[in-house]
Amino acid sequence: MTTSDARPSPGQAASLGQIFNGFLRASLNAFGGGLNAHLLNLVRRQHWLPEAEFAELSTFAQTLPGSNNGNLSALLGYRLAGVPGAAAALCGLLLPGSLLMCVVAWGGMAALLGFFLPPSAPVILAFAFTQRGSPLLTRLYRSLLPVGAGLLLAGLIVLGRGSVGGWASGMIAALSFLLARFSPVPPVLAVVLGLVVGAWLL
């Protein structure tokens, strides 16, 4: 079977349960960033969308206000099952982090949630609370920064493979990078410029 044979036809349906479960698993695996790579792997594994369409939705998500991850999840869910699909994707994406933040914020809930969370969860939370402000915890937090950068870079490489396929698309990608990195041009204007150049060259 070739790669193109494995790609789904446009409009391949997915159940709300599959969408919720898939985005929940992607969220649980995306510690420190790199959610795009996890979502692309999910789409590949489930044969939901071609990589090129995923790249288009990912690019469009970055032009919208709000969280890129939330925007992309809603777009993917909507593409798969309409408004209910977007809601299922967002619920799956946001549930793990929301629960964890509630536990961290309320502290005392850790004992109650110990019945539902793995046995190690209260120990980890107790360590975080007792060591707050300590040099050890500060070093642990700092160590997450390069991990997150590496995960984001991995997601960027995966996305770039499906988006940049020739000199014209490579030039558009380089131009977008230069505008975003070295100029005050808003991202949405960089996207519009890329669309104009792409319509002329691609």
Rank of each mutant, 00 (worst) to 15 (best):
S67F: 04
N68T: 11
N69L: 05
G70Y: 00
G70W: 03
N71Y: 06
S73N: 06
L75C: 02
L76C: 02
L76A: 02
L76W: 07
G77T: 06
Y78K: 03
A81N: 09
G82F: 12
P84V: 11
A87S: 14
A88W: 15
A89H: 13
A89Q: 09
L90D: 12
L90G: 11
L90Y: 02
L90C: 12
L90S: 14
L93W: 07
L95A: 13
P96K: 10
P96I: 15
G97I: 15
S98D: 10
L100Q: 04
L100E: 01
M101K: 00
C102P: 00
V103Q: 03
V103I: 14
V103T: 08
A105K: 09
W106N: 11
G107W: 05
A110C: 10
A110W: 03
A110N: 07
L112H: 07
L113E: 03
L117K: 03
L117Q: 02
P118V: 05
P118Q: 09
S120Y: 08
S120V: 09
A121I: 02
A121K: 00
P122C: 01
V123Y: 03
V123H: 06
F129Y: 09
Q131H: 14
Q131W: 09
R132N: 13
S134P: 01
S134H: 12
P135S: 11
L136F: 13
L137A: 13
T138F: 13
L140I: 10
L140K: 08
R142P: 01
S143G: 15
L144E: 07
L144Y: 07
P146H: 11
V147E: 04
V147G: 04
A149D: 06
G150C: 15
G150W: 06
L151F: 07
L151E: 05
